Simulated assay, not measured.
Amino acid sequence: MRLIVRFLPVVCGLLWSTACARGGAGSSPAANVVLAGSTSVQPFAERWAELYADGAGLGQVTVPAGGSTAGIRAEREGTAHLDMSSRALAADEATGLHAITVARDGIAVMVHATNPLRALSLAQLRAIYTGEIRSWRTLGGVDAPVTVITREDGSGTRDAFEHLVLTAGQSVDAHALVTAYSGGLRKMVAEDPHAIGDVTFSQVDERVRALAIEGVMPSEVTIASGAYRLLRPFLFVSRGEVSGAARRFLDFVLSPRGQ
């Protein structure tokens, strides 16, 4: 996994929801913690959960996904201890909720491994996703239609991508293909020589190829430095004060070992 993570002690004083606030789930050291939300954050939360259980033996952490918006809804409804979000909270969502950055991620724009294209400007990327550019020939490639693949509404990746790339009033082209999972999107791009898609940086592997945006390739170095433009936070979101099992897990995530 190639997510860029940083230890952020300055925000550790934020209040967080507790397992106790969900009917006493945090009242014993062996209590379970339930996370819900972003499929982009999910692989890292699962790894944190694995290390936490192996190192501390303090109970099970389960990590169902479903998307950032679904996770925020689950947090409000009290069906999860912590929400995983791959985007910042909207103004109408933030009331009564607290968010803490547990990692930072780059959104990679990827194409098929055989695509000769190496880089895009933000203006070109915007034109592709809004449907203004529909052929690879316009970008110096083959005379073939561009297959735009994006995430579903409610996805934190899609929300962050639209915020970072599109301008006010613009939306992703209605002809774009839509998928519910980052891994599924990568698979679709890997199988279509004319496809382009956007995913969390951790999903880029030898089956696809990331493009430079504004002359900068996504990498651990460029994401950490902020040189790569398509950046977003990975958040845990909660309501109320943290304690019990949820607090212990969050402390582990923010610890040097967790980071």
Results as ranks from 00 to 15, higher is better:
Asp159Trp: 11
Val199Gly: 09
Ser238Gly: 11
His194Trp: 05
Gly141Phe: 03
Arg151Ser: 13
Ser182Thr: 12
Val172Ile: 15
Thr150Phe: 10
Val178Asn: 03
Arg207Glu: 13
Gly169Lys: 13
Gln170Glu: 15
Gly140Lys: 01
Ile196Gly: 08
Ala190Arg: 01
Gly184Phe: 04
Ser238Trp: 06
Leu235Cys: 07
Ile223Gly: 04
Arg126Phe: 06
Ala190Leu: 03
Val204Ile: 14
Ser182Ile: 01
Leu211Asn: 06
Gly215Ser: 09
Lys187Cys: 12
Leu125Lys: 11
Ile196Val: 10
Glu241Ile: 11
Pro193Leu: 05
Thr130Glu: 03
His175Glu: 15
Ala176Leu: 07
Ala123Glu: 13
Ala144Arg: 01
Ser121Gln: 12
Tyr228Pro: 04
Arg232Ser: 04
Phe161Thr: 02
Ile223Cys: 06
Gly131Phe: 04
Gly184Gln: 09
Ser238Val: 08
His175Asn: 09
Gln203Glu: 15
Gly183Asn: 11
Ala160Tyr: 05
Thr222Glu: 02
Arg186Gly: 01
Arg232Leu: 15
Asp192Pro: 05
Val237Tyr: 11
Gly183Lys: 09
Ala212Ser: 10
Phe236Val: 15
Ser155Asp: 06
Ala176Gly: 08
Asp159Pro: 04
Arg186Leu: 10
Thr157Ile: 09
Leu166Gln: 10
Gly183Val: 10
Tyr129Arg: 10
Val242Ile: 11
Thr167Asn: 14
His194Gly: 02
Val216Glu: 02
Val165Gly: 03
Ser238Met: 07
Ala168Cys: 02
Thr138Phe: 07
Thr167Arg: 14
Gly240Ile: 07
Phe234Ala: 10
Ala227Phe: 00
Ala210Met: 05
Gly197Phe: 09
Gln124Met: 02
Asp198Asn: 13
Ala180Pro: 14
Lys187Leu: 14
Arg232Gln: 11
Val221Gln: 14
Trp136Arg: 00
Ser121Val: 10
Glu191Asn: 14
Val204Asn: 10
Gly215Pro: 00
Pro218Glu: 04
Ala224Lys: 11
Gln170Val: 05
Arg137Ile: 04
Leu235Lys: 07
Ala224Ile: 07
Thr130Arg: 03
Ile149Thr: 09
Ala180Phe: 08
Tyr181His: 14
Ile133Pro: 05
